[in-house]
């Protein structure tokens, strides 16, 4: 009987909600060490040797899939990308069928992106692999929150007490939900900023402050986190036009001036330049940490794979 400490007790990473601050801190510390390792040019290809990692993407994604692929390969895993086109889903293959197929392939680590909230949780009940949620519907995107937190921590030296403004389409954002859970757990002060039609019901119950005036929301912020506005939101009537949205909720120099002088600007990508963010800011190396977010993404995913693989060895 061993009492060794488990960073992800469930054996999966399905959500940030439910993780305790020490777990989050341990993941970030491990990711930090992988960031240094990656910069040194060294690799650690024996850690996941002989392990199979499957990237199972029911939604298109280049950035996140590539990031997991690189993370897996740097740790020595055999990485397979499965893009499940919507057509085969339309042919009647269900998630449960997919799970049966994956079990037959003896997959160890399964990275899942799906358009439906809760789909990775459903898969995790049916597959023998450790499941990592790479974004499910409007629920969570836990590795994005980890990489955002690591980026902030490296720039600001801490998370506790920082004022973080998350701006834009919070209603449909899994990135926002995961960040809210992580940052509030780590005692940052989280604000969400957007038009009332894009703020989820009872959002304040998640421990955030809600602002509809972006200038007020950015006042004194250490971190400005922009979210992607999907074009469908305009056609769905939640926002009348992109020009109106940019005027009141797009990040430009004038609005950013309300944040702290050393505030950093983040975006999970892909950006809609001229809708939620002005190019001049997105490309400003003094302000934008968007490139560093991508770099930290690989490190965080390596940390998550590492932690879950330790459990695989423990159970073997």
């Amino acid at each position: 009987m061993s009492f060794s400490y488990r960073i992800l007790p469930a054996g999966h990473l399905l959500a940030i909600e439910g993780l305790e601050p020490p777990h989050i801190g341990a993941l970030l510390d491990l990711a930090e060490s992988y960031a240094l390792l990656n910069r040194s040019g060294k690799t650690q290809r024996d850690l996941l040797k002989g392990r199979t990692l499957i990237n199972l993407f029911f939604e298109d994604s280049t950035r996140t899939r590539t990031s997991f692929e690189l993370a897996g390969k740097r740790l020595g895993a055999d990485v397979i990308n499965m893009s499940v086109s919507t057509s085969s889903v339309n042919k009647g293959e269900t998630l449960i069928d997919t799970a049966t197929t994956l079990n037959a392939m003896h997959c160890d680590l399964l990275v899942v992106r799906h358009a439906q909230s809760g789909a990775p949780a459903l898969l995790s009940q049916k597959v023998s692999a450790s499941v990592i949620n790479a974004g499910d519907g409007t629920h969570e995107h836990p590795t994005q929150a980890l990489l955002d937190a690591l980026t902030i921590r490296r720039r600001k030296g801490r998370l506790e007490g920082l004022v973080v403004a998350i701006c834009g389409d919070v209603l449909h954002s899994r990135v926002a939900r995961s960040n809210i859970h992580l940052l509030t757990a780590m005692n940052a002060r989280v604000r969400i900023v957007g038009p009332p039609t894009l703020i989820p019901a009872d959002a304040a119950r998640l421990g955030v402050e809600v602002f509809h005036d972006m200038r007020a929301g950015l006042q004194g912020a250490d971190v400005v986190m922009m979210l992607r506005l999907q074009k469908e939101r305009m056609t769905g009537g939640l926002v009348p036009s992109s020009r109106e949205f940019f005027r009141f909720y797009g990040l430009d120099r004038e609005k950013l001036a309300h944040a702290k002088p050393d505030a950093i600007v983040m975006h999970p990508g892909p950006m809609n330049r001229g809708i939620e963010i002005d190019s001049a800011i997105a490309d400003d190396p003094e302000r934008s940490v968007i490139g560093e977010q991508v770099e930290m993404g690989v490190a965080c995913r390596m940390a998550v794979l590492d932690v879950l693989a330790r459990d695989l060895r423990r159970n073997a």
């Binding site: 809760g118 019901a201 998640l206």
Partner: peptide, 15 residues
Amino acid sequence: TEGELATRLGLPGIP
């Protein structure tokens, strides 16, 4: 039902 739980679960709510 629209509210805190649906918001946490990322489910479309019915007011």
